[in-house]
């Protein structure tokens, strides 16, 4: 299955990137290009919705880590929406649950963002 990547920006300046399909060594460059493009357009607060991701490997993790480094260079943020156990497992194995904010829903991420302001 191909990777579908779409984005929109909310009124409070959060850019939500919806990812659907398999993120692996073949498709990860598409997500990387999207993250680079958004940062180049000045979007520094990103939320990657992974609820429709069917497969994620370390290449995909690498792209997310790379995106995080890019937005942090602009005092931005990159957080995730993910409730799928099989996807969360790979974040736990690699210790990346300590690095990424991981939310149950887009709404929850927005609420936390508002309360942190």
């Amino acid at each position: 299955m191909d990777l579908k990547v779409n984005d929109y920006t909310t009124d409070d300046g959060l850019t939500v990137i919806s990812v659907e399909g398999e993120i692996d060594v073949y498709t990860a460059p598409k997500l990387r290009e999207k993250l680079i493009d958004l940062v180049n357009k000045g979007k520094f607060h990103l939320l990657v919705d992974m609820e429709k991701v069917e497969f994620l490997d370390s290449t995909g993790l690498g792209v997310l880590v790379g995106g995080l480094k890019r937005v942090r260079a602009h005092d931005g943020s990159l957080e995730l929406v993910c409730t799928q156990e099989r996807i969360l497992k790979i974040f736990r194995i690699t210790g990346l649950t300590k690095v990424f904010g991981i939310h149950d829903s887009i709404e929850e991420a927005q609420e936390k963002r508002k309360s942190a302001k």
Partner: peptide, 15 residues
């Protein structure tokens, strides 16, 4: 992989 090449390969092995 948006990490250094060595890091990306090692991340795979760590997984």
């Amino acid at each position: 992989a948006d990490l250094g090449l060595a890091d990306a390969a090692e991340l795979g092995l760590a997984v």
